[in-house]
Simulated assay, not measured.
Amino acid sequence: MSLPRADYDPRRVCLNPFPHLHLGKHRRTAGIYIAGALFAIANWSFLDAAIYSAHARVPWEEEPPVHVTFVDWIPGICSLLGYLVVVLIDKDRIKGDDGFGDSRAVWRARLFLFIGFALMAGGLAGSITILVLKYVLGNYPELFKYYGYANVTQNILLMLSAIVLWMGQSASGEYEYNLTL
């Protein structure tokens, strides 16, 4: 049996800490802007596929073989709901800081955080399932597989945006001061 490391804190979840990224005094602002850009690219990629599907014309047939339907929208809706849940949770409640007297508040915040990430993971799994079952196994030309790729791209970028926004909001701002004695 080995002895615990000297800097081991039993309250930590991960044994190895995340790398410290030094982005200067504007890291909070940069994280928020990057998360917003990822959010916009995610939703625009799927909206582009939906608009392209609605106006698609195939020269060799009268009607395209496949369209983006409501089933394709469901994973994105799940991911958006999960994104909203994750972003709206107070970070101090998750940690249990600032003297929240109700221990159930910390537990509920962690439960809602889990539900938010579960919704996003379910949206990603659903988009991959739709890509495989509807577009890949349907033997459609590569032109129509773009609809499924855009759906998966949307869900991946929404998850990345939530993670970047979480890390950006957890960073100290340029107007915050840490006073220690």
Score class of each variant (00 low, 15 high):
Ile74Leu: 14
Leu158Cys: 10
His22Trp: 11
Leu137Arg: 08
Ser172Tyr: 15
His26Ala: 08
Glu62Val: 11
Phe46Met: 07
Arg27Asp: 09
Tyr149Pro: 01
Gly24Val: 08
Val136Asp: 06
Val136Lys: 06
Pro17Ser: 14
Phe114Ile: 07
Tyr175Thr: 10
Leu157Arg: 06
Leu124Met: 03
Ser161Trp: 11
Val152Asp: 02
Gly101Val: 06
Gly96Thr: 01
Lys25Cys: 08
Val106Met: 11
Val13Met: 09
Ile128Glu: 11
Phe100Val: 11
Ala56Val: 02
Asp48Ile: 03
Tyr135Pro: 00
Met159Pro: 02
Asp98Ile: 15
Val13Ala: 13
Gly138Arg: 06
Pro10Arg: 09
Ser53Lys: 08
Asn178Glu: 15
Leu84Met: 09
Ser79Trp: 06
Leu21Met: 13
Asp9Met: 08
Trp107His: 08
Thr129Ser: 15
Leu84Asp: 02
Tyr135Ala: 06
Ser53Met: 08
Ile156Gln: 02
Ile115Gly: 00
Ile51Pro: 00
Phe100Ser: 08
Gly31His: 08
Val85Pro: 00
Trp60Gln: 05
Leu111Gly: 01
Trp44Pro: 00
Phe112Ser: 00
Val86Phe: 10
Arg104Tyr: 06
Pro64Trp: 09
Pro64Ser: 10
Trp166Pro: 01
Leu157Ala: 08
His26Val: 08
Leu165Asn: 05
Ala30Phe: 10
Leu160Trp: 02
Lys91Ser: 01
Ala54Phe: 13
Tyr146Asp: 12
Ala54Asn: 11
Asn155Glu: 02
Gly96Phe: 04
Asp48Pro: 00
Glu61Arg: 12
Ala30Arg: 12
Ile94Leu: 13
His67Leu: 12
Gly168Cys: 02
Leu157His: 08
Lys134Phe: 09
Asn139Trp: 14
Tyr8Glu: 07
Ile94Cys: 07
Tyr140Phe: 09
Leu131Tyr: 11
Pro75Gly: 02
Leu158Met: 13
Glu61Ala: 13
Leu111Phe: 13
Asn139Ala: 14
Asn16Gly: 05
Phe46Cys: 02
Phe46His: 02
Lys91Trp: 03
Gly148Lys: 03
Tyr147Cys: 06
Met167Ile: 14
Ile156Val: 06
Val164Ala: 05
Thr180Asn: 07
Leu131Pro: 00
Met120Gly: 02
Val164Gln: 03
Ser172Ile: 15
Ala171Gln: 07
Gly116Ile: 11
Asp72Tyr: 05
Gly96Ser: 05
Ile51Met: 07
Ser103Asn: 14
Ala56His: 03
Leu21Ala: 10
Leu84Tyr: 08
His26Arg: 14
Asp98Met: 14
Asp7Leu: 11
His22Tyr: 15
Asn155Ala: 04
Val164Trp: 04
Leu88Phe: 07
Ser45Arg: 05
Ile163Pro: 00
Asp90Trp: 13
Val13Trp: 05
Asp48Trp: 12
Ala162Asp: 03
Ala40Cys: 03
